[in-house]
Simulated assay, not measured.
Amino acid sequence: MGKVLVLNQDYSALSVCTVPKAFLLVYMNKAEMLAESPRHFLRTVSNEYPMPVVIRLNHYIHLPYRGVVMTRHNIFRRDGNRCQYCGTHDHLTLDHVMPKSRGGKTTWDNLATACKRCNSRKGDLTPEEAGMHLKQSPFRPSFLMFIRDFSGLAADEWMPYLGAKDRAYQ
């Protein structure tokens, strides 16, 4: 079954949940359905219900700042599972753009996906010193940007609630 975008009462993206969880929230009047699947339905023995795609909670949920957790997997997703130097999908590793030995930190802004060959070639140099150019500079994605552009979960029906595809959310 698919995933459902959950919006807070003010229409800000809150999370992603399963279809059964979303249906239960709607059924118990804790949320309203804003978008439903045109092709899929939830069926019981005697009834058919629309399958939720986007729901909005009826009460505002206060949450602290939500960021994307920096993990190897999430950095690969951000970079499209491609080496940021040569573009290959094979033998991927993480590269510190500014090498750790020269004070580079393990942060979103300093880590890029690199294949073993390019990472080894770059070694303890910066990309400029090694004569290598990044296809995209590393950056910290926002929660909205990550759901919309990198998670692989976003349905077309989610886009009006996740904003235009740009880096204004950073």
Rank of each mutant, 00 (worst) to 15 (best):
K105W: 01
N81H: 12
D149C: 13
K135W: 00
T106V: 01
F76Q: 07
L63D: 01
G80N: 08
M145F: 04
Y49F: 11
H89W: 03
N8H: 10
N119M: 04
S120M: 12
G2F: 01
S120Q: 10
R66L: 04
P138S: 08
N29W: 00
L134E: 03
L153G: 09
V68E: 02
S137Y: 03
L7H: 06
N74C: 10
M132Y: 01
V53R: 14
D149A: 15
E129H: 07
N58I: 10
V6F: 00
S101T: 01
A31G: 04
S46L: 04
P20D: 07
T106E: 04
C86Q: 07
A13S: 14
G104W: 00
K116N: 08
F143N: 12
H73G: 05
S12H: 12
N119R: 08
D10H: 13
Y65K: 13
K30V: 02
Y60Q: 15
G67F: 00
P141F: 04
A114E: 04
H89M: 12
N47I: 01
T18H: 14
G123Q: 07
Y49I: 05
L57F: 01
P127F: 00
M145P: 03
C17L: 10
H59E: 14
S15Y: 04
L34H: 06
L7K: 12
M132C: 08
M51F: 03
F143K: 15
R43M: 02
R78C: 02
C17F: 02
H59Q: 14
Y169R: 15
V6W: 00
K116T: 07
D166H: 10
L63G: 04
F41W: 02
N47A: 03
M98Q: 09
L7E: 09
K116F: 03
P138Q: 06
Q9F: 03
P20L: 03
H59N: 13
Y27N: 10
K30R: 09
G131Y: 01
E48Y: 00
T44G: 15
D10F: 07
L153E: 13
F23R: 15
N110I: 02
A22T: 06
D156M: 08
K116P: 01
P138T: 07
Y169M: 12
P99L: 03
F76A: 09
A35T: 05
Q84W: 00
P50N: 03
P141A: 10
Y49W: 06
L5W: 03
Y60A: 15
F76K: 08
S142E: 08
C118S: 07
T71A: 11
D10L: 10
L92D: 04
C118A: 09
A112M: 02
A13G: 09
V6Q: 02
N74K: 14
C17T: 14
V16K: 15
M145T: 11
H133A: 13
I55T: 05
L34K: 13
M51C: 07
T71E: 13
G104I: 03
D156V: 12
